[in-house]
Design a protein around this nucleic acid. Structure first.
Lengths: 162, 162
DNA sequence: CTATATCCGGATAAAATATATCCAATTAAG
DNA sequence: CTTAATTGGATATATTTTATCCGGATATAG
């Protein structure tokens, strides 16, 4: 059970987009260079973010990506759902209905105990991610990083967005 | 991010092995028939369970599988770790060290805020699975199932275990 | 001792997923 | 109007996961 690299990449990228001036944008190539990741593949991930309404894009020369919402309106769950999809990790195939002792379909209105237990575990996982906003990540990063590092990032963003 | 079918299969199978008389065993073919799943692949999953110490096997004619522990000593997390592996879903590739504003490796002793947030979410997921024992699943199933159904399973197990 | 049932482990095939690439559509600037 | 920069979407490739098969080892029964 693995989460794609795109989740890591785009989460970091959102923290960079978050310090952009309003209306400005950064190109995929610039973002790919900033994190040294393959730009072609990153482009695909950014499109998934856009379709999910997390970022907005501007086409053509001078275009690029920016956040489409406030940082406290974007949670880690939003990003995971956008990149990795919202489908649950545990897939119940109703094997309790199979075989010599299989249950009738009409007797299976409620999920079985096993499916229910896995769903409950996934729910707390999703709840935890939903409770973590991009704003909270930014705040923690600001506290844990050196002022020089933060300044360096702000300057780079300023150059690329200018 | 998907959990393999083996997790669903082997969890159900553990609930069947749980009602075996002591020292008896059931063959992979019988279990595969009971749930109508491919026996070749199920055999692989059962070997993973055995290597994890969840079930024990007896070779040769009349052999088969049985639980290696008490039902309250087996959690859903044990089964997931055995079948799906214990590696975390979120893989941090330390891209904060990359690019023009990359951090030096020596300044990265603590995980970044993003990796920490995902780890925390996975931890509550694992904790929830660890808190759910096979015994608890069995008890819930006993309450929710009809006596006839439970009897049918017990009879089938009795026949197969000889 | 032979035949049969069963697990064991490695080799292999198929499917799904992750990764990478290309070209068309669009926009800004000169 | 032409050129360059950029996103958009479809398509190709690589990697991983999932599934199957087969020969060997082991144990039981006759």
């Amino acid at each position: 059970m693995q989460l794609g690299k795109g989740v890591e990449w785009t989460t970091h990228i959102c923290t960079v987009l978050a310090i952009l001036p309003d209306q400005a944008g950064i190109s995929v190539d610039a973002l790919a260079e900033f994190f040294e990741v393959p730009s072609a593949y990153l482009a695909k991930q950014m499109q998934l973010l856009r379709r999910a309404g997390i970022v907005a894009s501007v086409r053509g020369k001078g275009g690029g990506y920016r956040l489409a919402c406030a940082v406290d309106a974007i949670s880690l769950l939003d990003i995971v759902n956008a990149i990795d999809g919202p489908s649950p990790a545990f897939r119940c195939t109703e094997i309790r209905q199979n075989g010599p002792c299989g249950l009738k379909r009409k007797d299976c209105t409620k999920p079985c105990e096993i499916a229910a237990a896995f769903s409950a575990a996934e729910q707390v996982y999703r709840d935890t991610l939903a409770a973590k906003s991009l704003a909270s990540i930014m705040q923690e990063a600001a506290m844990n990083s050196s002022p020089e590092h933060l300044l360096g990032i702000a300057q780079w963003v300023g150059r690329e967005a200018g």
